[in-house]
Design a protein around this nucleic acid. Structure first.
Lengths: 405, 405
DNA sequence: TTAATTTGTTTTTCGTCATTACAAATAACC
DNA sequence: GGTTATTTGTAATGACGAAAAACAAATTAA
């Protein structure tokens, strides 16, 4: 599930038990294999500090649950009995990621190694359509993907749905508001055809941020992820964990006041970032109509040197730089990541963003390269949704059912 | 120590051991006593889910380490054998808090219950004096306080020093920059007379925020603490833990850009919050000279209805409101706390802060009462410094030496 | 072929908590 | 006042999991 990093709720520390110890050590073992490629039991013992017998016992259990497999033993060339290589099972538990975008639906299944094994993507104009209809189509796409995964020997163990909207901490499972889809207080579970495959919804910017984090492989990074798809989404990752804030609204920087007395915004305030760096604002400033794929259009015009487009992107970059200055002052992150559509426009946005940050961040160390485009771009949210399940399994494999086979 | 909440560093999960289980359960037991007043062993078992024998065993150990004591058993009035009340020891381990301010030094010793038992405060013009001299005087004050604590049967187990400056995560023990004192890269350990009593430095706004948190007793709150003492300090508390950011600069909102094209700031940027809500800026705007206790002067003038002062405070409040709008959008906190000098000026700052927030936070739930003045005001930092040690002991009592008596 | 080395498993030991049983201390009841 | 019910704290026993020690298996080096 994508619920990592939620407020820990009750503060009463829970007593430690022997079962808890076992659970944590199972996670340590599978975590070592996940982090350092194929390892023998002895290697795992060396990496983790557990003894070889303890590792052996847990490996047995993890194999029984389908999480690990013994693979072909590569000749090591070293003296002594060769170890038997352990790896994450590529025919075991898997994660299903679903995405509902304004103009498309997507699904993706990843195996325990994180490798995408099934892809589905269809264009659909979802804005304004009844939520039930859209969700039914997403469910159908997910069922197709699951069937294909099944044929590959994969067993989907969790489902997460990326939506371009706000998903509050409480009550869970609710999409409170997705303006670009026209959704208000939609609960996917209420419209899902099959109650056994209901996904957990999560904000797409949050999932994109997690995807970036896992893709880069810097495990404990703290960064701010900004993405654009119709609205402006933002997400905070702190020490490798999603930071959702007290109610789940953290990181939403579309309405940060960048020019306090500036243009009035639909939200009722003035000078919000969205009025300068939102898709609609940039298109307006560039003198372009909102048709087809507006991001591709902007990139094409900017690449061709169109003055108005370059000016619009420069203005957007400066506004983003201002908003990110606030973020850096408050959060002190390792880096800033431009995701979604911003990743595709990074060539034209980065210079003004970096210039603005360099001019305004003066009392602490700051390197322009700390701002970087996302490596995943628009695929981030689906991948993040699918990876969420897999990461959760690796963080606590004790929840896996033992294989019935 | 004040190092709670630092980036967890190595991400390799550590294996769970039986000693670790014991350590955690010791913390659970003492935590239950700390949270719910005097309890019998059976009460603790009920609160924690541990069994009575397990609790008994751990209570024995905690008494041996001086953390708990059996107190007078109050007649319960209920049937059955009466329990023997356990409480935090008020003659055991203690925390020493030290503070170096621009115009004063302070020291404070708290017992395990968190009760302040020794207070010291002297006025000193510390700005611009050699750091070694100031630190030597702080050490002397601390030694006095420790001697007095010793006479009360207290045993100082940790020392934390609040400074009005930046304390980065790495290298630890370093005050990188304290502009109001004129310090640059000062390491208290290098100037401390007695190597056995060297304190760990920490930013005073961070400690003030922790103090507020513990004083209120809302354990897992997420809030932003803003304080003023010469500069503007800020701190983030997330789920009850200090959030220091990747390098230790998190929460520093003095240079948040509130009016991007506004007044130039000493930092090199334009329109920083400090230019509108900093002490110097407010005094200038109010037409007052910087003499004696400027905060008291401002409060007196404002209370007397002085127009220029009221205008200056209103302007400061609106700027703070703008900066806090960014903080709310990014962090989604439970609340905002005005600390330090701002707490004493809250009557005149709060209206404009709240108005600005109400006008600008539109896309999420927000209540004006979420902004509140600190209950501790200027005593927050010393108390936070002293409490840090005590909280750390309660979070992990296994580190306590067994009593030699 | 033998020795050295490394791996993985088996056996034993140890530490921790849970369960059960029991003694001690009190209130309620007759 | 004595008996019973109830609750507390401790002692004895058991279960579980990891550590330590011992050992069998598989490889390289000599």
């Amino acid at each position: 599930m994508a619920g990592n990093g939620r407020a820990s709720g009750g503060v009463e520390a829970v007593p430690a038990s022997q079962q808890g110890m076992r659970r944590q050590n199972l996670a340590v073992v599978i975590g070592a294999v996940a982090a350092h490629g194929p390892l023998s039991r002895a290697d795992v013992a060396g990496h983790t500090g557990l003894t070889r017998p303890a590792v052996s016992s847990m490996v047995d259990e993890l194999i029984g649950r389908g999480a690990l497999t013994e693979t072909e033993t590569a000749p090591s060339g070293r003296v002594g009995r060769p170890g038997r290589a352990l790896a994450l099972n590529d025919r075991g538990p898997a994660g299903l990621g679903l995405e509902i975008g304004v103009t498309h639906l997507a699904a993706c299944v990843v195996d325990l190694r994180g490798e995408p094994r099934v892809w589905r993507r269809v264009e659909r104009a979802n804005a304004g359509r009844p939520a039930g209809q859209v969700l039914a189509e997403a469910a159908a796409l997910g069922a197709e993907a699951e069937a294909e995964a099944d044929a590959l020997g994969l067993r989907v163990a969790g489902r997460v749905l990326a939506v371009p909207g706000v998903v509050p901490n409480e009550p869970s499972g609710l999409v409170a508001n997705a303006p670009n889809l026209g959704w208000q207080a939609v609960r996917p579970a209420d419209h899902w055809p099959d109650p056994d495959t209901v996904p957990e919804p999560e904000n797409e910017a949050n999932l994109g941020a997690l995807a970036e984090q896992w893709h880069q492989g810097h495990p404990a990074e703290t960064f701010v992820h900004v993405s654009a798809e119709a609205g402006i989404g933002g997400a905070l990752v702190v020490g490798g964990q999603l930071f959702r804030g007290a109610r789940g609204f953290a990181g939403e920087l579309g309405h940060l006041p960048v020019h306090p007395e500036g243009a009035p915004c639909a939200c009722g305030a003035r000078g919000c970032l969205e009025q300068y760096a939102g898709e609609a604002a940039v298109l307006r400033e560039a003198g372009l109509a909102h048709v087809g794929d507006p991001v591709a259009l902007l990139a094409e015009r900017a690449g061709a040197g169109d003055e108005a487009t370059l000016r619009a992107l420069d203005r957007a970059g400066r506004a983003l730089g201002l908003a990110l200055t606030s973020a850096v002052n408050l959060i002190d992150p390792d880096g800033l990541v431009l995701g979604g559509a911003y990743a595709e426009l990074a060539d034209w946005l980065l210079p003004s963003i970096r210039a603005e940050l360099a001019a305004r961040i003066t009392v602490r160390p700051w390197a322009p390269e700390a701002v970087r485009p996302s490596a995943l771009g628009r695929r981030g949210p689906v991948l993040g949704a699918a990876w969420s399940t897999v990461r959760q399994i690796i963080a606590d494999p004790s929840r896996l059912q033992a294989l019935a086979r």
